[in-house]
Amino acid sequence: MENIFLKSLERKTGNAALDRVPASEEGDHRGADIFDGRFADHKAVLAKLDAELEARIGYSKRSALAESQRDVISRVAEKIISSEAGNFVDETVLASAVELSHFIKVSLSLNEEMEHRETADLAGELESVLGNFWDSKGEGEMSDMGKEKFIDAAALLAEIESRLERSYYQKNDPAFPVSEEYSHTDVLLAQGKVALRKIVKDNQDFVPKGKSFDEFFECLRGIADLGFDGGNGPARKNKLILKKMRHNPLAFRKLVNMTSVVV
């Protein structure tokens, strides 16, 4: 099984990155002997990272994952690699990658657990979690949700939002039969994001180092979307193009704003 972190780093920087030696306090050492030593250290750290991810997700599980699912995990790994200063993985990055792999593992487990539950049931659970949050929120105070509950709530939110998106392509989804459910769920999702964002503001360690709540939530959405190619949804190739279109909002928002047809 390939080391996904090493592959991610190579994809991002090319093999040339592995040829560089980071500047030390004494200056930029590029001697072959030091290079060989640091290069060996660097690969060792990546191997350790990969082993940590494997320990959490499991080799057997990873080998059973569909290509689209491995892609998501690879993209998450790339985000880890690209978010840190420089192109080298040190123990700090390892620590945050371990954290993120924990989130991945928890989300995958939660997703498995949630897979067979009705959306209305999940929405009810989220409502209950958020209800407790809003009820206990005094003026300027946040309820003490705790990191594990925070992850659970965030993964639940991601799963529900993912299903809401999917329901458009699965028009006979019994979970969303009427518009009341749509707007009620939308409000719930908005409340959830506002609440969790506030919690992260006071508890930065609830998300991986250097990540905002929204970046972290996007990772969880990616995991919640794993394997969804069903219904009349866009094919996988088109999903990639749609993602690029999404990252080019000005182009398409202007097209909507310029439309001269009455809605």
């Binding site: 939002e161 809401l164 998106e165 458009y168 939308d186 999702l189 908005a190 994001k193 866009p234 088109n238 193009i241 749609l242 279109m245 999404r246 909002p249 398409f252 928002r253 097209l255 909507v256």
Partner: peptide
Amino acid sequence: ADLRDRVESRVNAAIL
């Protein structure tokens, strides 16, 4: 923000 994202996704899918 969420609704705008969703509407944009629909429109993007239709364009594609």
